[in-house]
Design a protein around this nucleic acid. Structure first.
Lengths: 121, 121
DNA sequence: CTCGTTGTCAACCAATCGGTTGACAACGAG
DNA sequence: CTCGTTGTCAACCGATTGGTTGACAACGAG
């Protein structure tokens, strides 16, 4: 159904309401009704949001009588953090290397200055 | 048009192709055609993906003759990292506190142990 | 057993998304 | 100026998304 895990996680968190629920759940577990309270939508809509979060592995639900307490699974965050950190670091590394190159550049080799100057014919 | 910045960033990265492009751009700037090469989709589709990344602030495009080099803007990652770290830490903190509570719990008060273990009577 | 509470499932709807094709703008080369 | 290269814009299409309402399952209380 859904693509890779990372896509599901990012996609789940792309919705402000769902991020808000995660924020709420970071404080402590909650029932569906408790989670729905702050929002002006139907309970069913909230249930759907929770399903998205659950499919992404961000949340788990247990049974407790007719209540379904929702619990935040924080480990999944690591997946994202790892991905982000990888490319952030890579980009920064590249940036640092570019600085070195520029510093080592002899001043008689300006091949393509990106400055939009009009070369005098 | 789009909601908050965070939603745009998460949403942009929810697509595997776009994450792949970010990975490619972490290595160095690239033109639209270069970015499109690995994928079996039209150039227009890639152009759209880039627009999404650009609107999210993950990428910037300059002009260089008729070419449009694409550049990764890694700072935006901080936005996500900050959000994630906040709630991860909060959830972990809560978890640690729960451990304390459990540790301090006198053994004659086991109201609802969340451990799914079969207590040997 | 019946009733109220809590929550999910199913069907439907408008909007958005990722893809397509076709037209065309911007620019350098000939 | 004309042509090829590079890329965007616009219109369209099918699938997905976030929302709705209605039905109903699961459970405790009376």
């Amino acid at each position: 159904m859904a693509a890779d895990a990372l896509s599901q996680v990012f996609s789940a968190l792309a919705d402000p309401t769902r991020r808000d629920m995660v924020a709420r759940l970071a404080v402590g577990d909650a029932t569906v009704n408790e989670l729905a309270a702050p929002y002006d939508v139907s309970l069913q809509a909230v249930s759907k949001h929770l399903k998205v979060l659950e499919d992404a592995g961000l949340v788990s639900r247990s049974r407790e009588a007719q209540r379904r307490p929702v619990h935040l699974e924080a480990q999944v965050f690591d997946l994202m953090t790892k991905w982000i950190e990888r490319y952030r670091r890579q980009a920064e590394e590249r940036y640092r290397r570019l600085d070195d190159v520029l510093a080592a550049m002899p001043d008689d080799v300006p091949p393509m200055p990106p400055t939009p100057e009009g070369p005098p014919t």
